[in-house]
Amino acid sequence: MREDHHDQPHAPDHPMTEFEWRVDAVQALLIEKGVITADEVRRAVEEMDARTPAQGARVVARAWVDPAFKARLLADAKATIAEIGITVGFDATIVAVENTEKVHHAVVCTLCSCYPRGLLGYPPDWYKSLNYRSRAVVEPRSVLSEFGLELRSDVEVRVLDSTADMRYLVIPVRPAGTEGMSEEELADLVTRDSMIGVAQARTPALR
């Protein structure tokens, strides 16, 4: 076994915390016992780093321009996402839901922090926070308002609490004034938060 299994240098002037030592120790022991390899850990980090909201944005932009793709996405998200060369990993079933002028979806996981990480990458800190998990289900409009999203009272707010193996991906409303934009330009308007449902997609004027 290599003496130093780290692939990234320790910051020299950063004293290691107890937590860091323990991660090191657990990894070293799991390697010694042949459960995992250092290379597998490095690759797993790289694979996760490669999953970003930009992937989700490509999916949404395609759904905006291609109604047949959107219909397939809503029926079977995982297979449809694979059509454009994105694999979402093993751990969950992605389910896409569509926001419209009349219905707005927002996603939370009150029991832990389930998130479509196979597509969008690591969840943001606030998504994992106790306050978001507590409040998103009981006062969603206040929560959305804290994110700067005020919804009219004739819009039906649908909060999805992900308690099982479904990982919900929100397809935000395509902003007005985007006719004729390319799929790539449209993808730039699709933010992570709009795919969680705490924001709308950006409007071109605000780019």
Partner: peptide, 11 residues
């Protein structure tokens, strides 16, 4: 306090 149309969905 929100409108009566608001829904919660859960698996």
């Amino acid at each position: 306090t929100g409108p009566a149309r608001d829904q919660l969905l859960m698996d």
